[in-house]
Simulated assay, not measured.
Amino acid sequence: MLVTTTPTVQGHEITKYLGVVCGEVVVGAHLGKDILASFTNIVGGRSNAYESTLRETRDNALAEMMEEARKLGGNAIVGAKFDYTVIGQGGSMMMVAVSGTAVTLA
């Protein structure tokens, strides 16, 4: 399924707008990742532990949104937008939400 952040798809006609679709995934950090991230924070560099969790969470939210679009009969999603939010007591969890408009392309 084609997913784009743009409102149109160049070279394709949108034949039907099916509605807003969303995917949300909430993930909690755990002690092991927090320790690795703290060490990375001290010495500098990227936190592979958090990056892989973030990537997996984003991919799951995207898959959830695409499944919702398929159920509506869509073959593409336009106007996709990702939001990242820290939630929970002490910021112990993170939510990745993605939304867009399910459409059918000619």
Rank of each mutant, 00 (worst) to 15 (best):
L2C: 03
T85L: 14
I14P: 06
E51R: 08
L72M: 12
M95K: 15
E68N: 07
A69E: 03
Y17W: 09
G32C: 07
V9E: 03
V96K: 02
S92C: 06
K16P: 03
A97Q: 09
E13V: 12
N60M: 13
S92H: 01
Q89A: 08
I35N: 08
L54V: 10
A29R: 02
G74H: 02
K81W: 12
Y84T: 12
M1H: 07
V26A: 11
V3T: 04
E64N: 10
C22A: 13
G90Y: 00
V78I: 03
F39T: 06
R58N: 10
G90M: 00
L31W: 08
L54T: 13
G23W: 03
G91Q: 07
A97W: 01
A37Q: 13
L18R: 09
F82N: 06
T85S: 11
L105M: 06
K16H: 13
N75I: 00
L105V: 06
D59H: 06
V43Q: 07
G44L: 11
S47A: 08
A80E: 14
A49W: 15
I77N: 02
S92W: 00
L36C: 08
G88T: 03
A106Y: 06
V86P: 00
Y84P: 05
V9K: 08
I42P: 06
I87C: 04
K16T: 06
T104H: 09
V78H: 01
V86A: 01
A76I: 03
G11T: 08
Q10G: 13
T8G: 07
N41E: 15
A37R: 15
G91V: 07
A63T: 01
A63D: 10
V78Y: 00
S52A: 12
L72Q: 05
G19Q: 05
S92I: 02
G74F: 01
M93G: 01
V9F: 09
G11K: 14
A37E: 11
D83F: 11
L18W: 03
